[in-house]
Design a protein around this nucleic acid. Structure first.
Length: 407
RNA sequence: GCAGGGAUAGUGAAGCGGUCAAACACGGGUGACUGUAAAUCAUCUGGCUUAGCCUUCGGGGGUUCGAAUCCCUCUCCCUGCA
């Protein structure tokens, strides 16, 4: 395997697809399973690098579309890559911009509620409209900048060129994910397009790596929505190409995680790492993903939710803005060891959020990231110890106990 | 003392005869957020037995089929002139 990228499995968990391992990059190792922190615009919103490290983060994922718009990739070239630019000396991932084909395209202003069991919206309106900012064709996708309206065109080749200029350690192939409301016919069209794009991404990536001293790894992205035949087809197709690892994309609902991963991860080469794209806010997602063979996760929910006052505890999620916390002088979670829980009270956080003080979202983000990352770390340890199933059961029972008690 | 202007829901502020329980903003309550157009969004915010009814627009009294809106008067506030 390439010297710029290695994946070593340390321990497999019996009766599952789970494993603990180590991904090696030029910027250091990632002990897996691992939660990759979302740093879309070259920043984990609100946190300094020291705070990010204190949250136990091993790696950051940035976004090609956002960095292309701002500050522009030429700045990143001049600063010799995203790590130098950010002052972040640990591993980095970059996403291809494929997600923005969706979020600025079909999902744009549709009021799509993609969460859990309640997907709302009208399939008739889930296709192209005048207002969307991204349009797709077989060659690539046109984006109209959400910042100033400038038009950009991204093909798989251009995404790879941009990602090489950004210079993260691990890149994602340019893909198209489909709306949960898409027809089977459209899912098939998008998947086939994603496969063609995967080949083109890989070819371009190899070319770029030839003349590049700081070589980068590339993951191909599996699509196929929630259709077994397509997921398997997609996994087989991507597995036949020599990607360094795989991303699994297009999952919106936590309850789909296990089924979709079972279809795909039984086919994907076990010796290459698998990244679950955009999933892993609730701890349950993490357990399910790991059990089904996921090595790395990324998700923006911990920071976004923290900014909006939703904080994780071992006894379920709370909204720190609720009036019941106005004079609650305990920590967010007495069993959490983050800076926020060790030094600040719920009453104080409640005040910061009501006063719109920026320290509120900062402390909340520190807490949520630490909570999620430390949970994945414990999951990793439980695989190494052979205590995974017990840990999972205890964790989930405790997390949902308060809800269960209500019935 | 005289002449003008003003007092509207927790706060600020629209409304100036019926479509007003009263725009809007803030504040407050609750919910959502999953490869970040997100420090955002949704929703409720006089009371009640809530497709309806009741009590509200500084106090009191009128005019009118009908008043937050017009008139009289009282209280308080602001601006001029004495």
């Amino acid at each position: 395997m390439a010297n710029y990228f290695k994946f070593k499995i340390q321990q497999k968990l019996p009766r599952s697809l789970a494993r603990a391992g180590i991904i090696s990059t030029p910027n250091g190792d990632i002990e897996t399973p691992a939660f990759i922190i979302g740093g879309t615009k070259a920043t984990v919103k609100g946190l300094t690098n020291d705070q990010i490290k204190a949250s136990l983060a091993q790696a950051i994922l940035v976004n090609t579309y956002h960095l292309m718009l701002q500050p522009g990739v030429e700045v990143l070239v001049k600063s010799e890559g995203i790590n130098n630019f950010m002052g972040w000396d640990k591993p980095t991932f970059s996403d291809s911009g494929g997600f923005q084909v969706f979020s600025l395209g079909m999902a744009f202003k549709k009021g799509l509620d993609l969460t859990s069991s309640s997907i709302k919206g009208d399939p008739k309106h889930a296709r192209h409209t005048k207002s969307q900012l991204a349009q797709i064709n077989d060659d690539g996708a046109t984006f109209r900048s959400h910042l100033d309206g400038t038009q950009y065109y991204i093909t798989p080749e251009i995404s790879m060129q941009l990602q090489h200029k950004i210079g993260a350690n691990i890149h994602m192939a340019f893909d198209e994910l489909t709306s949960p409301l898409a027809s089977n016919e459209y899912i098939k069209t998008a998947m086939d397009r994603t496969h063609q794009w995967a080949k083109r991404s890989l070819n371009e990536h190899k070319k770029l790596n030839l003349n590049n001293t700081k070589k980068q790894a590339l993951f191909g992205v599996v699509q196929g929505a929630r259709i077994e035949q397509y997921r398997k087809e997609s996994a087989q197709f991507l597995n036949s190409l020599d990607f360094d690892g795989f991303g699994i994309g297009g999952i919106f609902e936590p309850q789909e995680i296990m089924q979709v991963l079972e279809w795909t991860n039984n086919i994907l080469d076990p010796n290459r790492p698998r990244h679950l794209l955009g999933m892993g806010s609730g701890p349950i997602d993490l357990f399910l993903g790991v059990e089904m063979g996921i090595d790395t996760f990324d998700c923006v929910a911990p920071t976004r939710q923290a900014r909006n006052g939703a904080l994780y505890t071992y006894e379920g999620r709370i909204n720190i803005k609720n009036s019941r916390f106005k004079d609650d002088f305990g920590p967010i979670d007495p069993d959490c060891s983050c800076d926020c829980c060790l030094n600040y009270t719920k009453a104080y956080l409640n005040h910061l959020f009501h006063a719109h003080e920026m320290l509120g979202p900062i402390l909340g983000s520190i807490h949520n990231e630490y909570f999620v990352i430390s949970t994945v770390d414990k999951i990793r340890q439980s695989i190494l110890d052979g205590t995974f199933y017990k840990y999972k059961k205890d964790f989930i029972l405790r997390y949902y106990q308060q809800e269960i008690d209500q019935f």
